[in-house]
Design a protein around this nucleic acid. Structure first.
Lengths: 228, 228, 228, 228
DNA sequence: GATGAATGAGGTTTCATTCAT
DNA sequence: GATGAATGAAACCTCATTCAT
């Protein structure tokens, strides 16, 4: 992962590092990149703007470093679940449940991720995607490939694409618990306010959705039938 | 849908209206709301900035009007498919295929939609979600409810949530064909460049994913078995 | 009095003339010259902005013409009172009483006059003062000179300066009934809200003030006494 | 008195503070609030526009701070005179003479005050009047009340209203020495150019005017006589 | 290392005025 | 005579970045 900070930043106490990045994440995630104000971040972090520029060359670099931190926290949660020896669908269930819990706890990180996903600049988008998605995707793909090899899932699935679909569902779910637009959208679909919602129903339904998608394979005979 | 333009805008020839909104959509979708420049939009649309303000009270209103246009175009495509008497999964297949085609053709509209989904301001997000998602969600939910009533799909699904999951998958797919970050992400998952990709594989896999999710219901006996 | 309108304005029906000028006076007096909007005036007067410019060359000219109308209305009220054969102090009393009544009725005209009195541009100020004050001042001065000649007032007064002081008192009183700042100022001095105020007390006191100022002459003996 | 500047402004050297405010007063008093240009003020004060906004949140706040300075300078001159143990009419004479001198020296402050008196916005007008007039009015009223208690002035005067009339006369006199419109108006009344005028005559006459107004009380017998 | 005062380019918005119809 | 669409200069304000101390 590329460093987006200067040497000076490495040398300061961990505590101050965290302070700066947490304040940055708060600002970037709540206002978006453009509307975030570096001077405000410095002030809230308790350091001078001059020092901020000793640590980061540009606003962009501070943003990237905030992202690194935020995303690695989210990734750690994912890794912990995926590291287990559980079968794929057990992992899926854990993931879904964890998503509900973490989305509320790590709201800022998810909002930050959401901000990234609407990056307009091609080069920045590519760089960010590579830094953020590579590892995650590998974890999902590997896990599914193993399940495939173990005969735990339908044999006609493509691990890469099913990993992609799975992540799409989980990512959107995260957004739906954390990001303003997605929260309202979920409310419109379910008719219930997200914050007041009981997670069980959505967890159960999504689990069914994913479980069936991953496990049931159409028998050859089905293929000759009329499509439902 | 609320009007976000002034009376003067209603009176001008359709051709100019389109010109302005298309130029606006191009600017907003390629640079994002904050970085979009209304002077540039006016210039590219061939009108003066003063006139622009005769049509729209604020940059925000121009943005909203661009969104209205972009989203209604996307919605029309959806409506056409969902209006058919096809069974749900036929519709799903059509939707998926249409998504591939339209995502490349209507790239700007989808990028605009993507921009909206990362709206940070709560009030704006709620307003936008209501304007954009209400209709779409109803179409999906109704269609699924009908399939449920007709016994075409598994009986233990919740139409609202399954509609939600389905839309999540389709929306993410659209983004993956249109938006820089999501394009790179898809490339990372599949290993293939999105633009050079043959859609067939992804369409087939997603269809399988959705089809199984919607149709296969665990038999009671399964519930007693060990989870896969 | 210099014409500040074009020929076209002279030819239109009296009713439309009045409409335009009344609307203009309303706009200029309530917002001030700079913040007044010619396009708004045209719209409220029911004519097109193009026509407005057929009648007046510039915003300034419209303003001047509004002033002419407003000031001549105020002047007419003054003239009527001053034309009587009453003794000076009877006139003064009538003036003061009229001021109270007219200040509320002709609030807009007085506000317009107040706007003029803070004109910053030297040339414009001179022009306006000449147009507005010449006639008024002559009326006052003449009246006082007659009273002086008739022995009705103290013999050591200078008619020009006493006219000036008298007008100062009356003008400020008008402002105090019509203009936001002066209204609040009067409230601060009296402790009573201007709009709720009973005029009698202020009329009586001002009358005493003026009456004494105009009529009592220090006897020679006084001059040797200690100043009070 | 409410602060209309930011903390940063408090910390800068007195000299620079004065520089900025004097330049601001010059600009506001010569062009009026609307036509004043803060970029010009910043340039003339020798600072950047960005810094200007570090000191003041808005143009309005800079204006208010300029006013505070200007008005407090004028108030100080008033206080000095009114603090003496002189009898009321001695004070009055001093006030009138001081007005002549100060009006020429402090022309900008008085023009600024004049600008305020034509404030159109109700809320702003009330705020300004309270900030500016409260103290002044109290000084006048107290002084007159004391003179009344001491039997130095006529017993039938209302201290509040007579203070009001006195201030009206002095204020108008100030304007007549400083503000374009009022200067021309004075010229029209006296026939002499204000700048070339010998103050003595106007001072003497105004003193007579005020002295008589304050001291001579109609005897009861007068009341039965025909009004003069 | 640390500060924060200072910069100034750039974007949104307003409105007097023009002119083709 | 009458319209009102169209123009564009100009002003307020923000904030990433610099640099002297």
């Amino acid at each position: 992962m590329i460093k987006h900070y200067k040497e000076a930043f490495e040398k300061i106490p961990e505590e101050r590092k965290e302070r700066i990045l947490e304040v940055g994440i708060e600002e970037f995630s709540s206002k978006g990149y453009e509307n975030a104000n570096i001077n405000v971040i410095a002030r809230n972090a308790g350091i001078s703007i001059g020092l901020m520029y000793k640590y980061f060359s540009t606003k962009e670099d501070l943003f990237f470093t905030c992202i690194s931190r935020g995303m690695s926290i989210l990734e750690d949660a994912l890794k912990e679940i995926m590291a287990s020896r559980d079968k794929l669908l057990i992992k899926a269930e854990k993931l879904i449940r964890a998503t509900c819990v973490l989305s509320r706890k790590n709201m800022n990180y998810i909002r930050l991720y959401n901000e990234i996903t609407s990056e307009k600049d091609g080069a920045r988008a590519v760089m960010l995607a590579k830094e953020i998605e590579s590892h995650t995707s590998r974890i999902y793909i590997t896990s599914i490939a193993q399940a495939l090899a173990g005969g735990d899932v339908r044999q006609d699935l493509d691990p890469r694409l099913f990993a992609f679909f799975l992540d799409n569902l989980l990512t959107t779910l995260q957004f739906s618990f954390s990001c303003e637009y997605y929260k309202e959208r979920l409310k419109i679909y379910t008719g219930v306010d997200t914050d007041a919602m009981n997670d069980d129903e959505i967890v159960n339904q999504l689990l069914k959705f994913i479980e069936s998608a991953f496990t049931f394979e159409k028998r050859t005979s089905d293929l000759t039938e009329e499509k439902i």
